[in-house]
């Protein structure tokens, strides 16, 4: 019983953590972020919000 309780608590914690920040989905406002460094974009553009007025494709990638 005690064990079952601990497992339930553990599961609950996992669910809470997973749900603490929901993913950005169609219809949501896309959160702003600043660039640490950038290439091939106009000088002076340092954060996402400066691209308002354009359609922006944010592609998450990695070199590996």
């Amino acid at each position: 019983m005690k064990l079952a309780g601990s497992v339930a608590l553990l599961l609950l914690t996992a669910v809470v953590f997973a749900g603490s920040l929901s993913a950005v989905a169609p219809g949501d406002q896309g959160p702003n972020f600043k660039f640490d460094k950038s290439w091939n974009i106009e000088d002076g553009m340092t954060e996402l919000s400066q691209f308002r007025g354009k359609v922006v494709m944010i592609e998450s990638w990695a070199t590996w």
């Binding site: 950005v24 989905a25 169609p26 219809g27 949501d28 406002q29 896309g30 702003n32 996402l48 919000s49 308002r52 007025g53 354009k54 359609v55 922006v56 494709m57 944010i58 592609e59 998450s60």
Partner: peptide, 11 residues
């Protein structure tokens, strides 16, 4: 993975 935002910043 990617997200596309419109001119108003909406996904």
């Amino acid at each position: 993975h990617c997200w596309v935002l419109d001119a108003e910043g909406k996904c």
